[in-house]
């Protein structure tokens, strides 16, 4: 599944070359039909994050203070970790925790 991921507010510093925009191809976890946000987060952790994953994730979710938007809609309205992603969705991660990163 093709997704566009954007990282901002300092989160891009955790990625290789601090690139903010990533066009990625993510496959559903075995046994699941669709890519869920939960699966995307662990995919991002193992494929994109190069350092200090604790700045991005806490437990199985994003660190509190990281804003997530799916197609510019607050992910809290889309089901949070259980939100199902669709082809060509745009997912944005913005850290509001400045000064700590």
């Amino acid at each position: 599944m093709h997704l566009t991921l954007e990282f901002g507010g300092g989160l891009e510093l955790l990625l290789e070359k601090s690139i903010k925009m990533h066009k990625v191809d993510v496959q559903p976890i075995d046994g699941q039909e669709k890519v869920m946000m939960k699966g995307l987060l662990s995919w991002v952790k193992s494929n994109l994050i190069k350092e200090r994953p604790e700045m991005f994730l806490k437990g199985d979710s994003v660190r509190p203070g990281v804003l997530v938007l799916i197609n510019d809609c607050d992910w809290e309205l889309c089901g949070g970790l259980d939100a199902e992603l669709e082809e060509k969705d745009v997912v944005v991660f913005i850290s509001t925790l400045h000064g700590v990163l």
């Binding site: 901002g8 507010g9 300092g10 510093l13 660190r63 509190p64 203070g65 804003l67 938007l69 607050d74 944005v92 913005i94 850290s95 509001t96 925790l97 400045h98 000064g99 700590v100 990163l101």
Partner: peptide, 29 residues
């Protein structure tokens, strides 16, 4: 943050103590 999105970080600020309180607040939120 959502009103426009923008943020810039101070390269000199370790300020860990403040950071802990901030994180605690986001946990509470």
């Amino acid at each position: 943050v959502i009103y426009p999105y923008y943020a810039i970080l101070c390269i000199y600020s370790p300020n860990a103590y403040r950071g802990f309180a901030r994180e605690f607040i986001k946990d509470l939120e």
